[in-house]
Each structure stands twice: as structure tokens, then as C-alpha cells.
């Protein structure tokens, strides 16, 4: 693992965290969500990139 250059990967981890945080803020404010909110919290936090994508595309009800 010593070959891994963390300076290169760190910005991506930061972006990943940013994505999850935006998802959680949006979930906090949302009035209309498909399914229970606690389930989406688990999906966003545990599901990394795909979990956040799932919340933003399927979880939010726009109308």
C-alpha cells in the first residue's frame, strides 16, 4: 500500500463526503420522500456514490 499516493485520492474522498452531506441536507429539508427517511439516511451513508445517486434520482419526490 506504500505506493498509493493519498494526496491524489483525498480530493475525491472529500467530494464523496460532500455528495453524502448534500444528500443528507436535502433529505432533512424534504417534505415528500418515497419510503421512510431513516432508510434513506442508511442508504446515503452506507451506499457511497450509488446510495447518493439512488436518493437523488428515486428518493426525492419532485411534485
Amino acid at each position: 500500500m506504500e505506493r498509493v499516493n493519498w494526496g491524489l485520492i483525498l480530493p475525491l474522498l472529500a467530494l464523496q463526503v460532500l455528495l453524502a452531506v448534500i444528500g443528507l441536507i436535502s433529505l432533512w429539508k424534504a417534505e415528500n420522500v418515497r419510503g421512510p427517511k431513516w432508510l434513506w439516511i442508511i442508504i446515503i451513508v452506507a451506499g457511497n456514490l450509488l446510495g447518493s445517486i439512488a436518493y437523488f434520482t428515486v428518493g426525492r419526490r419532485e411534485i
Binding site: L12, L15, Q16, L18, L19, I22, G23, L49, S52, I53, F56
Partner: peptide, 9 residues
């Protein structure tokens, strides 16, 4: 924000 972030990742 989220769509560009997903594309960047």
C-alpha cells in the same frame, strides 16, 4: 451540484 460531482467521481 450533485450531478457534476457524480460525473467528476
Amino acid at each position: 451540484i450533485w450531478i457534476p460531482v457524480v460525473f467528476i467521481l
